[in-house]
């Protein structure tokens, strides 16, 4: 998570308007979901991965590790689509060609869709992404909540880490039963500290005139019509190429 966050804040396209990144990514995601997967998904996957690495400057290693987690789930789950279980005459496992095709389609489509999301989370800090949500009409209260949680996750993650290290230093994780006990204590302790933290944060905010609303300035981006046009053109081209391929192949 630290790595994702780090790249989101420091990548080459960090200063771009969120819409310039969000619109093409969501456009490609939509194409992936509505067009035939076998022709569209590989194009989207390759296009998005190359853009992420050579455009935004995210290292291959980071991108692949982000995609690896969902890919593992896919690999574990997908084969079962290619196998059908038959209970009519006892119990039989049979391999079905249609099932195999379905498995392949699902796999490639899911990966392509994941790559679009990976592109977004690797090139856009959560705070920018939230702006897109605001544009889409999500209520201010929910947005405040998301942003506060984002900020506090890092505060508590640090506490949790130091707490764990302190416990480990006193052999709290030397045996399985002790580990379970230590982890429970740590959790309880963090919960208490979270409440305490909330109280003190409220004091700190009250000292700055907090009256129930967390209003802050939103950054000023300049929308580049040029970049947006390139993005939209890329999506359209992918769509056209995919349809053309589909007519040729199928």
């Amino acid at each position: 998570m630290r790595a994702i966050d780090h790249h989101a804040w420091t990548n080459r396209w960090r200063d771009w308007h969120p819409v310039e990144k969000g619109l093409p990514a969501i456009g490609l995601l939509t194409l992936t979901l509505i067009l035939p997967p076998l022709t569209t998904a590989p194009l989207v996957l390759a296009g998005v991965m190359l853009t992420t690495v050579y455009g935004a400057g995210i290292p291959w290693k980071t991108l692949l590790s982000v995609l690896a987690a969902p890919a593992t789930f896919l690999l574990a789950g997908i084969p079962f689509l290619a196998i059908s279980i038959d209970f009519t005459s006892g119990f039989a496992l049979t391999f079905s060609p249609e099932g195999f095709q379905l498995a392949l389609q699902t796999m490639i489509r899911a990966l392509a869709a994941m790559s679009c999301l990976a592109f977004l989370i690797l090139t856009m800090p959560l705070t920018d992404g939230v702006l897109l949500l605001r544009r889409m009409g999500v209520p201010a209260g929910i947005i405040e909540l998301i942003l506060l949680i984002y900020r506090l996750i890092f505060v508590f993650a640090e506490r949790a880490l130091t707490g764990r290290q302190a416990q480990a230093g006193r052999l709290g994780y030397s045996r399985l039963d002790r580990s379970v006990r230590s982890l429970g204590l740590l959790g309880g302790n963090l919960f208490q500290r979270a409440l305490e933290q909330a109280r003190r944060l409220e004091m700190g905010l009250m000292a700055r005139g907090y009256t129930g609303e967390l209003r802050v300035l939103t950054p000023r981006w300049k929308l580049s019509w040029m970049r947006l046009a390139v993005g939209v053109a890329g999506v359209s081209l992918t769509g056209l190429a995919s349809s053309w391929l589909a007519r040729g192949l199928l």
Binding site: Y210, R215, P219
Partner: peptide
């Protein structure tokens, strides 16, 4: 950390 709540520096200072 008891006082900073916003995700970026300038946002926090603008509060």
């Amino acid at each position: 950390d008891d006082q900073l709540f916003a995700a970026t520096v300038s946002q926090d200072v603008s509060f």
